[in-house]
Write a protein that binds this DNA or RNA. Sequence first.
RNA 1: GCCGAAGUGGCGGAAUGGCAGACGCGACGGUCUCAAAAACCGUUGGGCCGCAAGGCUCAUGUGGGUUCGACUCCCACCUUCGGCACCA
Length: 828
Amino acid sequence: MTNETHTRPRHDNADRYDPRAIEPKWEARWEADGLYHTPDDDPRPKWYALTMLPYTSGDLHVGHWFAMAPSDAHARHKRMQGYNVLFPMGFDAFGLPAENAAIKNHTHPAEWTQKNIERMRGQMKSMGTMFDWTREIATNSPEFYKWTQWWFLQLLKHGLAYKKNASVWWCPTDQTVLANEQVVDGRCERCDSVVMKRDLDQWFFRITNYAEELLDFSNVEWPEQIILMQRNWIGRSEGAELRFGLDVAGVAEEEVRVFTTRPDTVYGVTFFVLAPEHPLVEQITTPEQREAVRGYVDAARKQSEIERVSTEREKTGVFTGAYVTNMFNGEHVPVWTADYVLATYGTGAVMGVPAHDQRDFEFAKKYGLPVVPVFAHPDWDGAELEHAFGHGGTMINSGGFDGTPDADAIPAVVAYAEEQGFGRGTVNYRLRDWGISRQRMWGAPIPIIYCETHGAVPVPEHDLPVLLPEDAEFRPTGESPLTYHEAFLHTTCPIDGGPAKRETDTMDTFMCSSWYQMRYIDPHNDERPFSRELAKQWLPVDQYSGGAEHAVMHLLYTRFFTKAARDMGVVDIDEPMTRLFSQGQILGPDGQRMSKSRGNVIAPDGEVEKWGADTFRAYLMFLGPWDAGGPYDASGISGIYRWLNRVWNVVTGATTVGPRGDAAATRELRRWTHKTIEKVTSDIESFRFNTMLAALMEYTNHLTKLRESGAEIDADAWREATEAITLLLAPTVPHIAEELWSRLGMPYSVHTQSWPAFDPALAIEDAVEIGVQVNGKLRDRLTLPLDAPEDAAREQAMASAAVTQHVEGKELVRVIYVPNRLLNFVVR
RNA sequence: GCCGAAGUGGCGGAAUGGCAGACGCGACGGUCUCAAAAACCGUUGGGCCGCAAGGCUCAUGUGGGUUCGACUCCCACCUUCGGCACCA
C-alpha cells in the first residue's frame, strides 16, 4: 500500500447494478460447480434445514417465495457459520387438486403434475436458492411411494394400522365421495345437491397409542403457541368411564359406558344422551319413538361437527323411549339422542347432569327434564337453578358422599366406583385415530390384497411398489377409480396364489409428508427407505419451517411417524424436527387466502423479471415479521431496488481512501461495522429478517454519507466495511453479493466464506442519549458517557431548565435511574 | 362455537416494562432536464402556541386496572386472520 491518498480507479464502476445480467450468470456458475451439492462425507458439523415441500398446484406464487427465500437465507447463513448444510427440496404431488384438474382437462393427473413440477423447479432455481437438486423427491414417483407403502406395511406389522367403519361425505347426484372442502353449506360444491354421509370400511393408524408421548415437547424447541395448539388438539382429560345398566329387552348389551370428567356429579344424572351415530340408538329405540329418532339421526348426519358442537346453537334431541339405570343410586333415567354429543369423543355418550354442566342444563330446560343439584355451590342460595354450577361446594343428594368437599369428591367417587364395579378412573383424549383411506385415484395405493380365504393380506415387501396404473379412468361411481381398472384390481393371494382383489383405496397425502424428510438423506436408495448410517448422521431436522396452517395435523402426524419408526427400530430419534419456525401466510390483495378459485393468486414472475430475484427475495423478507404474513402489496419493492443500488455504489464506486483517515471517524466507521455485524447476526438467527434489513439499510446510508462527504477514509476500515456488508448480504441477496465479492477482488465464492466476526470492543458506544422524565413525562434529553453513575446524570439533569421548571417548588419523592436509558423524577 | 394468533401514522412496520413511529413505501418540496421519467437531496403522526429557535398537548382497536412509568403486564369487550381431523 502506498502512502499516497488515492481514489479507487473507476474501471469497474462504469456499469450499473444490472440484476438481469448478473443473476443468470452466477446461477449458471453455481450449478456448473455443484456449489450447492451437500456431501455426506464432510467433516464439518451437520445442519439439516428444511422447509415444507410445496404442493404441485401450478406456478410458484408469492406465498412459496415468502416461505422459501427466508429459509434459504437462514440455511446460507448456517453454511457460512461453518456447518455442512443439507437443504433439500421436493414436491408434494398426490392429492385432490391434481384429480380435479385431470377431470377438467381430460388428462391423467400424472401429466398435469409432471408439467407443474418442471415449471416450479425452474422457478425455484431462478430464486437463487441453495437447494441440493441431486436430492429432489416427488411423492408421486414410484421410487418414493414404494416406501410410503412400505411404511404402511410396517405400521400394520406393528399393530398400528387397523380397519374400521367410518363415514365420508357423499354426493347422491355425482355418485362420489366428497372432501370436506367440497361440501359448502351442506351441499355439493359442484352440483349443489344436499350431501349425505356414507359408511365405509377404512384404514386407520393408532396415533392415539402415542397420545401421552405426543404431549411431551421436552425434546423440541418449538414456538409455544404451536405446542399449545397440539396440546389442545390431543385434548387430554382425566375422568372416569362409568357403566350404566341398559333396561331394554331384546338387546344383547346389558350396559352402556360413558366417559365423564365429572364422575363426582353422577348422583345428579337425570337423563342420558347417545350420539346419533351411536350403534345402540337403532337397537334401543322403542317402536313409538322410531320414526322421530330416525328422522333426527338422518338430519344430524347432514351437519358438520363444527355446527353440532357450537355452544351458541340451541340444543336439540329426541327421546329414544329407552331407559338406563344409574348404578350409584338405582335410578332409571331416560335415554335421548342429541347432536351435541359426538360419536368420536369418549364413548359417544354423555350422562346428563344439568345442575353442573351448562350444555346439559340448556338441554334439560328445553325438554323439561329434572335438575338435581349434587353440590351445594357457595354461590347457590338453594333456589331453583338458573344456570349450571361448575366446581365448588360440598356434595349433597349423593347418598353416603354427602358433605364431601369438592376437592376430594372425584377421587372418592372413582374409588367407590372401582370397588363396586360401577366403572374406573381413566384418561380420555380428544385426539382420534388417523383415517388414511381415500376413495381416490391420485394417491399411493394401499398395499393390501383381499383373498376370500385369508382376508386382508399385506402385499409382500418384495412386491412393492403397488404401481398406480397410468390409464385409470375417472367415473363418477363413488368408488376409487382403481376399482374399475381390471388389470389393477385382479391379482392373486400372496399366501395361496388363488384369485384375489386389490385394495382400491389410496393413502392420505399426509402420509407422504410424514416421512419425506427422512428420504432426502438417502433419496436414491432402492433397498431401504434410507440407510441407518445416513439416518444417524443427518436426523433429526435441525431447523424446520412452514406455514402456521400446518401447526396441528401435518406436524402431529410426522411426530407420530417418527415415534412409531423409533419403536419399530427404524430410527434412533424421538422427534422429527428439533426447531420449528411457523411463518405467516401471504394473502391475496383481497386479504383472502390465495387460491386459484378465488382468482387472487399473485405470481411473482413479472416482479422478478423487472427487479431481479435478489430484490424480490429481500422485499418479501422486509415486509414484516416472518411469522405475520398478511395481504400482499408490491408497492414498496422499488425501495429495496434503490437500496441495492446504493449498496452497489458504495462497494464498487470510487471512494477517497488513504492511510491517514481521521481517527475519530475511523473509530465511528468501525463501530458501525461491528454494530451491524452484531445486529444482523442476531436477527438472522432469530428469523427477524425485516429488522435485519433495516439495520443493513442504515449501515448503507451511513457508508453512503461517509463516502459522499469526500473526506479521506481510513483504507483498512473502508475495506473492512465493504467486505462486511457484502458478506452480511450474501444469505439474503446471493447474486449481487457474489458479484460484489468478485469485484472486491476476493476469491470465489462468497457463499463459502466465513461469516464476519463481531468484536464487541469495537461496537461499544462512547456516549448515550437518555430521556429525562418528570412523573413519567418526557421533559428533556441528556447525552452522557456510557454507564454514567446516577449522581452525574442527576446533576446534569438539574442543570436543564426544561426539567427544573417541573421540579422546583415540589417535593421530590423518588428518582428512578435506568443507566443508558432514562432518568425519572417523581415529584408531588 | 371451540383452539391459536394479531390490531401502532396515508400504507408495510419498529420499539415486548423505560425517549412511540426505526427502516421502507407514498406524499410534498428541491436538484438535474426543453419537458417527463429515472436518479439523487430534504421535509413528513394529529392539534395548538410561536416570526423563529422551540414549546405545549393528544395519540398504539374499545373500556377498565396494576405501575414512578404501559404499545408492552392483568380483566372485559370488538374486529381480523389461521386451524377444527377427506384442501394441502
